[in-house]
C-alpha cells in the first residue's frame, strides 16, 4: 500500500539498555517534572501521572523501538495515553527522552503551547494519538494493531488506560472485539491506581475515604474471559515491569491474542503527601510542598537540576 510518509531509518532497539536503578533515577526526575510543571502552570493533574510514571519510563527508556529524532518513523512502536488527562506524565518522559527540550515543559497548558492539557498528536512530537475524552484510546490502538497486521508491519502498539477510565463503555467494546483480530501486537496497560477524581465513598456517608473504581471487579478474570493474555504487576516496581515486557515481547507475533497488563499502582506514587490521597487527583503544590517533594525525589542530586 502507498504510504504518506517517506521510509526512514529503523527506530532504535532498546530493551535491556538500562537497569532498574537507572530507571528509578529517571523516574524520580520525571516525578519532579510532573509536580513542578503543574505548579508552574498553576493547574494540572498530579495523582494519575505519578502512578503511571514508572511504566512510562520503562516503556520509553527501556522497551519501545523509537527514535526521538524521527517521531513519525513508520516502523516505530506506538504509544497511546488513553487516560489523556495524565499528559504531563507523558510530556515529562518525552522531554527527558529527547523529543523536545525539557525547558518547553514550562509552557504546559499555556496558550499557543505544543503541550496542551490533553495530548494532541498534531502538535506534540512523540504523541501518537490525540486523547482526552476518556475511553477512546484502546479503540485507536486496536485500529493501529489491525492495520499493522494487514500491512505485515512488525511494530507493537501500547495503550495505557486508567481504572477510573475503564468505567467508560467504549473500553469494553474494544476489549471484546480485539481478540477477534488476533492482535498479539497490541498491549493494554491498565494503570489501576485505586482512585479516581471523586468516585464512590469507601463506606456509606464517608467524605474523605474513596473506594477503588474497579475494586469490585476481578479485572484479571474479566480480561481473561474476554480472550486476552493477562499479566499482573506492581506497576511501581521496575523489576516486575521489565519481566512483563519480556513476556509481551515473547507473545508478540506468536500468541494470537492481545495482552493486558494489570498494573497495580498507587495514585500519587513517590511523593509522601500525594500518595494515596484522592484530593491530589489534581492540584498545585505550595512552595513548601514543592521543596519537600524536591527533597524527597532528588535529594542533593545535582543531575536533578532540570528546571
Amino acid at each position: 500500500m502507498r504510504t504518506t510518509q517517506q521510509e526512514e531509518a529503523s527506530p532504535q532497539e532498546l530493551h535491556g539498555a538500562l537497569d532498574t536503578q537507572a530507571l528509578e533515577k529517571i523516574a524520580r526526575r520525571v516525578r519532579w517534572l510532573i509536580i513542578s510543571t503543574v505548579a508552574n502552570s498553576k493547574a494540572g493533574h498530579i495523582g494519575g501521572p505519578l502512578s503511571a510514571a514508572d511504566m512510562l519510563v520503562a516503556l520509553y527508556f527501556n522497551e519501545m523501538s523509537i527514535d526521538p529524532s524521527q517521531p513519525h518513523a513508520p516502523d516505530r512502536d506506538r504509544f497511546i495515553l488513553s487516560k489523556g488527562h495524565c499528559s504531563i506524565g507523558l510530556y515529562s518522559v518525552l522531554a527527558l527522552r529527547g523529543y523536545f527540550p525539557v525547558e518547553e515543559l514550562a509552557t504546559f497548558d499555556h496558550g499557543g503551547s505544543r503541550l496542551q492539557g490533553h495530548p494532541d498528536m498534531k502538535l506534540t512530537p512523540g504523541v501518537d494519538a490525540s486523547t482526552g475524552s476518556l475511553g477512546q484510546g484502546l479503540s485507536a490502538g486496536l485500529g493501529m494493531a489491525i492495520g499493522a497486521k494487514k500491512l505485515d508491519r512488525d511494530f507493537h502498539t501500547w495503550v495505557m488506560l486508567g481504572d477510573g477510565e475503564s468505567e467508560e463503555g467504549q473500553v469494553w467494546e474494544a476489549v471484546i472485539s480485539a481478540p477477534r483480530f488476533g492482535v498479539d501486537n497490541l498491549t493494554a496497560i491498565f494503570d489501576v491506581n485505586g482512585l479516581q477524581q471523586y468516585g464512590w465513598p469507601a463506606q456509606e456517608r464517608d467524605r474523605f475515604d474513596r473506594s477503588e473504581p474497579l475494586g469490585h471487579v476481578d479485572l484479571e478474570a474479566v480480561l481473561t474471559g474476554f480472550g486476552w493474555n493477562v499479566l499482573t504487576v506492581d506497576g511501581n516496581d521496575f523489576g516486575q515491569i521489565l519481566s512483563a515486557f519480556d513476556q509481551v515481547r515473547a507473545w508478540h507475533g506468536t500468541s494470537g491474542k492481545p495482552t493486558a497488563i494489570v498494573s497495580r499502582t498507587s495514585k500519587g506514587q513517590g511523593i509522601s503527601f500525594t500518595q494515596g490521597v484522592f484530593k491530589w487527583h489534581n492540584g498545585v503544590a505550595t512552595p513548601e510542598q514543592l521543596a519537600q517533594a524536591r527533597h524527597e525525589l532528588l535529594g542533593n542530586d545535582p543531575e536533578g537540576e532540570l528546571q
Binding site: 506506538r78 501518537d128 494519538a129 477512546q136 484510546g137 484502546l138 479503540s139 485507536a140 490502538g141 486496536l142 485500529g143 493501529m144 494493531a145 489491525i146 492495520g147 467504549q170 474494544a174
Partner: peptide
C-alpha cells in the same frame, strides 16, 4: 476509534 487508528 479503530477507523482513526487505521488512518494513521
Amino acid at each position: 476509534g479503530v477507523a482513526f487508528g487505521l488512518t494513521t
